[in-house]
Computed example of a mutant assay.
Amino acid sequence: MASAQTALELKDIHKSFGDLKVLKGVSLTANDGDVISILGSSGSGKSTLLRCINLLENPSQGQILVGQEELQLKPGKDGNLIAANRKQLEQMRSRIGFVFQSFNLWPHKTILENIIEAPVQVLKQPKAEAIARAEQLLEKVGLADKRNAYPDNLSGGQKQRVAIARTLAMDPQVLLFDEPTSALDPELVNEVLAVMKGLADEGRTMLIVTHEMRFARDVSSQVVFLHEGQIEEMGPPEQMFNNPKSQRVQDFMSSHR
Score class of each variant (00 low, 15 high):
Ile96Val: 14
Phe17Ile: 14
Leu71Ser: 07
Ser246Val: 00
Leu20Lys: 08
Ala118Lys: 03
Leu105Gln: 02
Gly97Leu: 04
Gln72Thr: 09
His211Leu: 10
Pro244Lys: 08
Arg147Val: 10
Leu207Trp: 01
Val22Trp: 11
Gln222Glu: 14
Ala163Cys: 07
Val223Ile: 15
Asp152Phe: 13
Ile36Phe: 14
Gln121Gly: 01
Gly142Ile: 05
Gln63Gly: 05
Asn190Ile: 00
Asp78Gly: 07
Val122Pro: 04
Asp145Met: 05
Lys197Arg: 15
Arg214Pro: 01
Ser94Glu: 08
Ala200Gly: 11
Ile96Cys: 09
Leu65Ala: 14
His211Glu: 12
Phe100Met: 03
Ser42Glu: 09
Lys46Asp: 13
Asp251Tyr: 10
Ile164Arg: 05
Gln61Ile: 04
Leu65Thr: 10
Leu71Cys: 08
Leu56Ala: 00
Ile208Trp: 12
His256Gln: 14
Lys24Leu: 04
Lys46Ile: 08
Val224Gly: 05
Arg86Tyr: 14
His108Glu: 08
His256Arg: 13
Gln160Arg: 07
Ile82Val: 15
Phe225Met: 12
Gly18Thr: 06
Ala134Glu: 14
Ser182Asn: 06
Ile111Ser: 09
Glu57Tyr: 06
Gln5Pro: 00
Gly43Tyr: 06
Asp171Ala: 14
Gly198Val: 01
Leu105Pro: 07
Lys127Gly: 07
Ala30Phe: 02
Glu9Phe: 00
Pro186Trp: 00
Leu56Gly: 00
Ala149Val: 06
Asp185Thr: 05
Gln160Phe: 11
Ser255Gln: 15
Ala7Val: 04
Ser94Ala: 13
Glu232His: 06
Gln239Cys: 01
Ser42Met: 09
Ala216Glu: 02
Ala216Gln: 03
Ser41Lys: 09
Lys87Asn: 15
Arg214Tyr: 03
Thr110His: 07
Phe100Asp: 02
Ala144Val: 08
Ala163Ile: 07
Ile131Gln: 13
Leu168Ser: 04
Gln88Met: 15
Leu20Asp: 11
Ala83Trp: 11
Leu105Ser: 05
Leu168Gln: 08
Asp19Cys: 01
Thr167Cys: 13
Asp178Lys: 06
Ile82Pro: 04
Gln125Tyr: 13
Asp218Met: 01
Leu123Pro: 02
Gln250Arg: 15
Gln61Phe: 03
Arg217Phe: 00
Gly33Val: 11
Ser182Asp: 09
Ser44Gln: 12
Pro172His: 04
Ser42Gln: 07
Leu123Gln: 14
Asp171Asn: 15
Lys87Phe: 02
Ser254Tyr: 06
Gly157Cys: 10
Ser27Pro: 06
Leu105Asn: 02
Gly229Ile: 08
Glu9Ala: 11
Thr205Leu: 07
Val174Leu: 14
Arg133Phe: 13
Lys24Thr: 12
Glu212Ser: 02
